[in-house]
Amino acid sequence: MLRRLTVTAVASLAVLSAAAPAATAASPLVPLPPLLPVLQGDWLDGKEAQTRLTVTVSESGNPAADGTFELKCGPAGGSHPAAQRACDLLDEAAASGENPFVPTDRNAMCTLQAGGPAAARVQGTWQGEEIDARFSRSNGCEISRWNNLVPVLPSAR
C-alpha cells in the first residue's frame, strides 16, 4: 500500500512538474524541480518488508509459552522464543502470497471439535501492513489456522 501511495505521489509530482513551466511562463515564480532522485528506485522495499509484531498468548497449556513476546524480522530478534523460525515461516507465507493473519471465513464449514482454551492476539506490522489478528482453538478451522502459524504461535496442548 505504501508503494502505491508513493507511485501516485511521484506520478502527481511528474504531472505538476511538466505543467509548471507553462503555468509560470508569464510569472516570475520558479517552476517545480524535476522528480526528486530519492523517490526513485526500490528504497522502500526494505521498509515495507519489515515485520514488527507483538504476540500475546494465554492458556496454551505451556506456561512458558504464555505471555507477551515481541517478534522482529529482518533481522530476526525480539523477545520471541523462536524468532528466527517464526520469521522464516512469515517470509515463506509472504513469498507464496498467503496472509496467515486472515480470519476464518464466517461461512466456512468447520468441524465441531474443541482444541482447548488457548487464545492469542498478534498485533503490529507484517510486510508493511497493519495486523490485528485473534486466534483460538475453538473449532477445526481455528485449530488449523493456529497450527499453520506455529512457531509464531506456540504449539498448544
Score class of each variant (00 low, 15 high):
residue 2 L to I: 15
residue 4 R to S: 14
residue 9 A to Y: 12
residue 10 V to N: 01
residue 12 S to H: 10
residue 12 S to K: 02
residue 13 L to M: 14
residue 14 A to G: 13
residue 17 S to Q: 13
residue 29 L to K: 11
residue 30 V to Q: 12
residue 33 P to Q: 13
residue 35 L to N: 01
residue 41 G to V: 00
residue 41 G to K: 05
residue 42 D to R: 05
residue 42 D to L: 04
residue 44 L to C: 07
residue 44 L to F: 02
residue 45 D to C: 06
residue 46 G to N: 10
residue 46 G to M: 03
residue 46 G to Y: 09
residue 47 K to L: 15
residue 49 A to R: 05
residue 51 T to W: 01
residue 54 T to G: 11
residue 54 T to V: 15
residue 55 V to W: 00
residue 56 T to F: 08
residue 56 T to W: 04
residue 62 N to P: 07
residue 62 N to H: 14
residue 63 P to N: 03
residue 68 T to Y: 02
residue 71 L to E: 00
residue 71 L to Y: 02
residue 72 K to E: 12
residue 72 K to C: 13
residue 74 G to K: 00
residue 79 S to R: 00
residue 79 S to A: 10
residue 81 P to K: 05
residue 82 A to Q: 14
residue 85 R to A: 15
residue 85 R to K: 13
residue 89 L to W: 04
residue 91 D to S: 13
residue 97 G to Y: 09
residue 99 N to I: 07
residue 102 V to D: 06
residue 102 V to S: 04
residue 108 A to F: 09
residue 109 M to L: 12
residue 111 T to M: 09
residue 112 L to E: 10
residue 112 L to F: 10
residue 119 A to L: 08
residue 119 A to E: 12
residue 128 G to D: 03
residue 130 E to H: 08
residue 130 E to P: 08
residue 133 A to Q: 01
residue 139 N to I: 07
residue 140 G to S: 03
